[in-house]
Design a protein around this nucleic acid. Structure first.
Lengths: 202, 202
DNA sequence: TTCCTGAGTTAATATTTACTAACATACATA
DNA sequence: TATGTATGTTAGTAAATATTAACTCAGGAA
């Protein structure tokens, strides 16, 4: 890159991420991306070999944006199930509200059978599930939760939260009355937590 | 329709439903639909005015295929929360396993921002949620469940089940070990039910 | 100064694709 | 038997769109 000039490649990545998540791969044209970057179509090909190459880069870049490590560290402070699950859920919902494009892209590519969909899906969702399994196992060892298949439990709980996140983004306005994510979590996580804790704890 | 001849319009609907749910609106061509019906493209236009018209009909036809009335009648026999929720969940999961195309179509049309997406979504998911709210209200009146915002509760539980249904179809094989829907329900619905029932009941 | 290279342009191409025009024909009915 | 209509065909058209060809030009290195 020449000194003083803008980072065109980064600009293309940013604009195409926005466009692809808005409309999906097929509906976005090279011209749209080029226009969004204020250059012509052939100029795009100086930076990326093809439209597919741009899309690949967009999916690759998602990895960098996840950063779940901070969350997992923060969650260590909770020694009880309910507040732990609440913060876990709130984080996911807020994250996807702020990064709606990620989930849209994920759905688009998964539905289309894109080769990277599996990888991206496992990356995003799998990291949450894996951490939750580990923590649920520990809650059980500490005698705080009843015996369950924690792999299944973790998947389902994460699924419930992801679905809720979807309701506040993709399905926004589809379900009649809109609730704040905090209110939804405050209503439902206690149900789930109450169903998990050992009888003595109640 | 001429006697003895096949119902071409129904055939087009069936084949295009399959194709649209496989690949989404944009990726399906008129030629593909025509080929699937063993006719030429212009012949399609004898039955439908446009590609968009075919898609509209596909979404309209979903309504007919849902048939939740039977389920809701069958569920009346359950007087306890847990078996009720279990049959509710199992039904949805089995239904979407058998009719994977419906959920795929729903997602495609929602992502595409298709004008009918909202209607179809409300139709499919709303009917389950509405019924569940009504039943949860009754469980509470009977003193069988604790006080909750049942609209939120119903949405979340339905969301968890829908997500689980998705895991057995759209996300199949993405999550490592595959569990049978029955096993997933047997693990998770009791958690949720246990979190909902009044203390006396336990 | 000279020249190479990165980054851009305009113009064109090849392909895909929704849709139409014009024509053909078998069947039901008057 | 005659004929209109439903249903099909072949052969287009027009628009969209990914990609390429050929050329321009500014700025740093030799």
């Amino acid at each position: 890159m020449r000194s003083g000039s803008i980072d065109r490649k980064a600009q293309i990545l940013k604009e195409s991420t926005r466009l692809f998540s808005d409309a999906g791969y097929d509906k976005v044209t090279i011209k749209q991306i080029a226009d969004a970057c204020s250059i012509t179509e052939p100029a795009l090909y100086r930076h990326y070999a093809s439209k597919e190459a741009i899309y690949d880069s967009v999916l690759d870049a998602i990895e960098v944006r996840l950063g779940t490590d901070d969350l997992f560290t923060a969650l260590e402070k909770h020694s009880e199930i309910q507040p732990f699950l609440e913060e876990f859920a709130i984080h996911i919902i807020h994250y996807f509200t702020k990064n709606e494009d990620i989930y849209r892209l994920l759905l688009f590519s998964a539905l289309r059978g894109h080769s990277k969909a599996k990888k991206v899906y496992q990356m995003i969702r799998g990291s949450y599930v894996k951490f939750l399994i580990m923590r649920l196992d520990r809650f059980f060892e500490e005698g705080k939760s009843i015996k369950k298949n924690n792999e299944v439990t973790a998947r389902c709980f994460t699924g419930m939260v992801f679905d809720c996140a979807l309701s506040t983004t993709l399905w926004k306005g589809f379900q009649g009355k809109a609730y704040k994510p905090e209110d939804v979590v405050a209503n439902n996580v206690p149900i789930y937590a109450r169903g998990l804790v050992t009888a003595d704890e109640k």
